[in-house]
Amino acid sequence: MVEFLLLMFALDKIYYTPLGKFMDERDAAIKEKLNSVKDTSEEVKQLEEQAAAIMRAARAEISAALSKMKKETELEVEQKLAEGRKKIEAELQEALANLEKQKEDTVKSLDSQIAALSQNIVNKVLPVQ
């Protein structure tokens, strides 16, 4: 029986205690890794939320920039159209003024030709005495 107790004591000190210590350390390391993975998953969720918020802000900023650019382009187009209309109206007024002047010149020319022609007819119909 003493041999049995000595064998048990020796096995406990030489084999079971180091094995138990190794298994306890391994269990603690596994628990630590599991806890760090859980912490990391929370951190990943926070980072995903931050990324989503940044994307929403960027989309809103892009939308505002596009809206502003559209308004500026519309104003520029309207301004150019107004300038074009003014230019066309000025050219039309100038053309109308030229036509009116040509009409007056033509009427004066016709008046002088009518006067000359009527004088010519009078001279032919009524002989000069």
Rank of each mutant, 00 (worst) to 15 (best):
E48K: 09
L117F: 11
E49T: 11
D27V: 01
Q119H: 09
M69L: 05
E94W: 00
V44G: 02
E104S: 07
L34W: 02
D27E: 14
K86T: 05
P127W: 01
A90M: 07
K103R: 14
A57R: 06
A10F: 13
D12Q: 13
S109W: 04
E72R: 00
N123W: 00
A90N: 13
E78D: 14
A60T: 10
A52T: 14
N35W: 07
E32I: 00
A60Q: 14
E89L: 08
K87M: 02
A10S: 13
E25W: 06
D27T: 07
D105P: 00
Q79D: 08
E61N: 09
D39C: 02
G20R: 10
S112P: 02
A115F: 07
E78R: 08
I114M: 06
I62Y: 07
G20T: 08
S41D: 11
S67W: 03
K80A: 15
Y16N: 12
E94S: 13
N120Q: 12
D24K: 14
Q119L: 05
A60V: 02
D111A: 05
K71F: 12
Q119S: 15
V122L: 05
I88Y: 14
R56G: 02
L11M: 06
L126Y: 10
E48W: 06
I114V: 15
E42G: 08
M69N: 08
K68N: 11
A51S: 15
Q50C: 00
V77N: 09
I14P: 00
K68H: 11
S118Y: 00
L110Y: 14
A82S: 12
D111M: 10
D24G: 11
I30M: 10
I114A: 10
V2I: 08
V44S: 07
E43M: 06
K13C: 03
F22Q: 05
N120K: 06
K31Y: 04
V37E: 10
